[in-house]
Design a protein around this nucleic acid. Structure first.
Lengths: 203, 203
DNA sequence: GCACGAATCACCCGGTAGGGTGATATTTGT
DNA sequence: ACAAATATCACCCTACCGGGTGATTCGTGC
């Protein structure tokens, strides 16, 4: 599996090195080390990572939460906060940047790994549309969709209207409706929403 | 502020007592101690806590992840996992229960406090969580769904009609339509099918 | 040749959904 | 205390959708 590139933003060189070592020992690779906000922004610009670990308390005018805000605005990559303690106000600020996770110091390898895995998993949960396979659908629901019904099914799954499907498939809206009626019957649903909901986990 | 009631599910009495002592020294109060899944379920039923700390490895047939599943189904209260180590498969199972945090042993007072604070904050910011996680959706699409909009979103994802949703949520069809209109606008779609299609991979 | 499934299309009807506008009470944040 | 966000509901109107019925064409296979 591809190695995941992590940018570490941490002003304590010792901790930063610790993290780097831990990450190297597992599935991740450190794309960069930043000791302050300026470093961090340059790294983001020139060497974009897959995920960012942000220490909240940095010894610069901008802290980790400020960087998080910028990440949200400029880049859309996941980040986790790395902190030993945060008061209510700080926590509230941090929360509003919608981080994908928190890592509380001190932490160990398993802690780091779990948090990053979860953060990435949640962030990339939206995968490209999975192509449904006719045979799989047929066998899973023990039905027998025809070729055309399956094509219409795939179109409906993307959220198209009847008219859009008619144009895409070069047939009339009435024909689309007929195929849909057959689909509803075969899959035992009554609306296109139910259809999508029923098949949304893929086949 | 009101003290927060914590249920501890931990089969090692020594560790459980440790946690109890730490919690007592900070803002939390231990509402109960459970040594296995049966204890835990009884505590949940009779003495409902504000948050649950779940050891994953329990010396009973059901482990912490099983309990988490039940909490998601029956109660909608936040929980954090408490574990020293988890392999990939276990982590994957745990992840899917959408815990509000992880505490990795060994831990200290600050560690506990920060994790519980964060868990509670995140939870009450995204209550109730059922299949989808509001924060996740909000951050992925860089929007700001309200609580009610999110609840309607979850219902729509299951294929319900407006009338069905109105009955479920005890509000009028008109209100459902208002929330849907806002959802469409925020998520930049025009039909419920598009909505489901856009969010179908789990969000 | 004929039966059968598949694909095509038409028409009607009632219900649902989507879009616009406006209004009020409650909650929340500052 | 005040402003903003949220949750609630109403009305109107058009378009779309789901369900029912029926019909034609075209292959494939027996």
């Amino acid at each position: 599996m591809t190695q995941i590139r992590v940018l570490i933003v941490e002003d304590e060189p010792l901790i930063a090195e610790d993290i780097k070592e831990i990450l190297s020992s597992i599935d991740f690779v450190v794309s960069g080390l930043a000791y302050d906000a300026l470093d961090a922004l340059r790294e983001l610009r020139t060497n974009t990572p897959d995920i960012v670990m942000l220490d909240i308390n940095l010894s610069s005018e901008k802290d980790g939460i400020d960087i998080a805000t910028i990440i949200n605005q400029e880049y859309q990559i996941p980040f986790v906060f790395l902190t030993s303690y945060a008061d209510r106000a700080t926590l509230s600020r941090a929360k509003h940047t919608r981080p994908m996770g928190y890592i509380v110091k001190p932490f160990d390898e398993k802690d780091l790994f779990a948090t990053l895995e979860i953060a990435l998993f949640n962030f990339y949960a939206s995968q490209p549309l999975v192509e449904l396979n006719l045979d799989q659908v047929n066998s899973r629901y023990d039905i027998n969709l025809t070729q055309k019904e399956f094509e219409v099914l795939q179109s409906v799954m993307t959220g198209m209207t009847n008219r859009q499907m008619a144009e895409k498939h070069f047939i009339s809206v009435n024909t689309i409706k007929t195929h849909l009626k057959n689909l509803y019957e075969k899959l035992d649903v009554h609306t296109r929403s139910q259809l999508i909901a029923k098949l949304r986990d893929g086949a």
